[in-house]
């Protein structure tokens, strides 16, 4: 599939290291040339493929993710949405057999450059998981965890309050900050996880089907919350719920899985990536149209 929706695709630009980086030995990471950087682009994927062992889960993805927008990934289950999302903050490093080919450029820096420390990446690019996973600690300690590991000393009460307020959870928990987070409802736990991610002031938040374990009311609250914080954060969300993608996202990427010719496996591909409005009203690709209208086979 040709990535015609990529805003500016000039991959040859970055294949050569610039003169500046070649002379400066103190710069371990290849620095992008200023003129290469689109000011609104946060991520630029270049020909990204992810393998689990010899199985290719998703291939040749090219896309640009813009700042302070909500970008949704939709597609049938097993097409590699989670796999792709976990490339944006190198969470795939935790899977021993996972291997990434291609580039994930974050403000022009390839996150998979050998000089990049995944710990630093994850402090800037937070993640919210499919199943709420609060630590079995107090509500306060859950929020304070990130700032603490980032080395913030002293009283974190203010950070905790601010993060909980931003996640629209403060009023519900302000009287029981010392209680275990495990006592909260599923929806509250997920908002706590969002608050926890916000507490370290990330630039980007990755969400992997954050509402799939929640009831419609809790889902609605999380959607409202995303709407509210999107002016400050860049959000990438995987969702199996097309209405949700249509409601919350600015841009939407549709993936599907293609059967491989040589083996009995399926590999995910990016079919179409465009403004959400267009994706749902007038998609360019027939497969997208079939999927969004519910005629997906």
């Amino acid at each position: 599939m040709a990535p015609e929706t990529r805003t500016q695709s000039q991959p040859e630009k970055r294949s050569e290291p610039t003169a500046a980086t070649r002379v400066d030995a103190n710069r371990p990471v290849a620095e992008p040339r200023p003129e290469d950087i689109d000011p609104t682009a946060v991520f630029d994927l270049e020909d990204l493929s992810v393998y689990y062992g010899s199985f290719r889960a998703i291939r040749n993805v090219d896309m640009t993710v813009c700042q302070k927008q909500i970008t949704a990934f939709i597609g049938p289950s097993g097409c590699g949405k989670t796999t792709l999302l976990r490339c944006f903050n190198r969470m795939n490093d935790l899977v021993d057999i996972a291997r990434v080919e291609g580039k994930v450029l974050y403000h022009g820096v390839n996150l998979y450059d050998s000089a990049v420390n995944p710990v630093e990446v994850r402090r800037r690019i937070g993640m919210v998981f499919q199943k709420p996973n609060p630590f079995p600690k107090s509500i306060y300690d859950n929020i304070a965890f990130g700032p603490k590991v980032a080395g913030v000393k002293g009283d974190l009460g203010e950070v905790v309050e601010r993060s909980l307020r931003r996640a629209a959870l403060w009023d519900e928990v302000k009287d029981r900050l010392k209680d275990s987070a495990m006592g909260l409802s599923g929806g509250q736990q997920q908002r706590l996880c969002i608050a926890r991610a916000l507490a370290v002031d990330p630039e980007v938040i990755l969400m992997d089907e954050p509402c799939s374990a929640l009831d419609p009311i809790a889902t609605g609250r999380i959607e409202d919350l995303m709407e509210e914080i999107k002016s400050e954060y860049t959000i990438l969300i995987v969702t199996h719920n097309m209405q949700q993608a249509a409601r919350v996202s600015d841009r939407c990427a549709f993936f599907t899985a293609e059967v491989n010719e040589t083996s009995d496996t399926r590999t995910g591909i990016l079919v179409e990536f465009d403004r959400t409005e267009k994706m749902f009203s007038n998609p360019s690709d027939e497969r997208t149209e079939n999927y969004v209208t519910g005629r997906f086979g």
Binding site: L94, M127, K131, V149, R196
Partner: peptide, 24 residues
Amino acid sequence: ALREASYGMGARKVTTSVRVVIPA
């Protein structure tokens, strides 16, 4: 999931072991 939560917050391996896995 607890380890992932910790790594996802930018915690290092030591921190994850000492602050998350061992207490749990």
